[in-house]
């Protein structure tokens, strides 16, 4: 499990690689929060295109980061989600939040 972050203007992009479960989520959470709290970006983008496994720990990670970004008026965007990961997100109603990257409207897949 690795993460790679890039910053441009007001956007912090976090590229997640590996398996996202309860064990790995704690490390990912603290790494993302450390970056986000330090630079207060207007937008946080979580890129899931190289996440090879995810259980509901991933939903918790997304919900927590959504709340964090909203705490300073920022927003969260999710990218690179496979249909399976989208199905998981929809169990929590995350599909009803404005978190999809452009061109990733969940109704189109």
């Amino acid at each position: 499990m690795t993460i790679q972050t890039t910053r441009s203007e007001d956007t912090l992009t976090v590229h997640l690689t590996g398996e996202l479960d309860h064990h790995s989520a704690a490390g990912w959470r603290s790494a993302i929060d450390r970056e986000a709290i330090c630079c207060h970006p207007k937008r946080l983008v979580l890129d899931f295109s190289d996440v090879t496994f995810m259980d509901s720990s991933g939903i918790g990670l997304v919900m927590g980061r959504y709340k964090l970004m909203r705490s300073w008026g920022g927003d969260l965007r999710l990218g690179g989600l496979s249909p399976r990961l989208r199905q998981m997100m929809s169990l929590a109603g995350i599909d009803r939040l404005p978190v999809w990257e452009e061109g990733e409207n969940h109704e189109t897949y």
Partner: peptide
């Protein structure tokens, strides 16, 4: 607690 979605059984 924090960051547990409460969806384990739903999944």
């Amino acid at each position: 607690g924090e960051d547990r979605a409460g969806l384990g059984f739903s999944v």
